[in-house]
């Protein structure tokens, strides 16, 4: 019996939207892909039967859908990178100005990473997935996931260290 889609949306859409927003760096794309994922599941509810790790399954579906959407538009990874340069609001607004400036700097730093590194960093830091789970979600070997994370994190650290040290 497939799960209730409204419940599924309430449980997982915030995480999927965050991942898509960070991966595509465009709110319109994140919305479109999230919508496509759930419309696909509405049309084919049988795909959800027997899924054990629902979050991982949905993230995998969202990642594939995001890549397909870019391929369809013949923009591919280069466009994701171009879009990464466009301003986007990734994080929830906060009252603390220091936190706000750190979030703004983090948003810019994430834009410096290649899309696939960003995807791994996101799943590791914000979804607390293991490299094996990330590997399965993104269809890459676990070693590749680990190395992408290491490179991505090193770059973020290099870009954010001054501000991070200042705020500590």
């Amino acid at each position: 019996m497939p799960p209730d889609l409204r419940q599924l949306y309430d449980d997982h859409a915030p995480a999927l939207f965050a991942f898509l927003l960070n991966f595509t760096r465009r709110e319109a794309d994140a919305r479109d892909v999230l919508q496509e994922v759930f419309l696909k599941l509405t049309a084919q509810p049988g795909r959800l039967v027997g899924v054990l790790e629902m979050r991982a399954f949905l993230l995998r579906l969202a990642h594939r859908q995001a890549i397909d959407a870019h391929r369809r538009r013949r923009t591919h990874d280069a466009a994701i990178e171009r879009a990464a340069a466009e301003p986007v609001i990734l994080f929830a607004p906060g009252a603390d100005p220091d936190e706000a400036s750190f979030r703004a700097a983090l948003t810019e730093a994430l834009a410096e990473l290649p899309a696939e590194q960003r995807a791994v960093v996101h799943l590791k830091l914000w979804e607390q997935m293991t490299f094996a789970e990330i590997a399965e979600a993104l269809d890459i070997p676990a070693n590749t996931a680990a190395s992408r994370y290491r490179y991505g994190l090193d770059k973020l650290q290099a870009l954010l260290r001054p501000l991070y040290e200042e705020l500590r």
Partner: peptide
């Protein structure tokens, strides 16, 4: 980094 909260849809 992991404590930073993303926007809601």
């Amino acid at each position: 980094l992991s404590q930073q909260v993303f926007r809601q849809p």
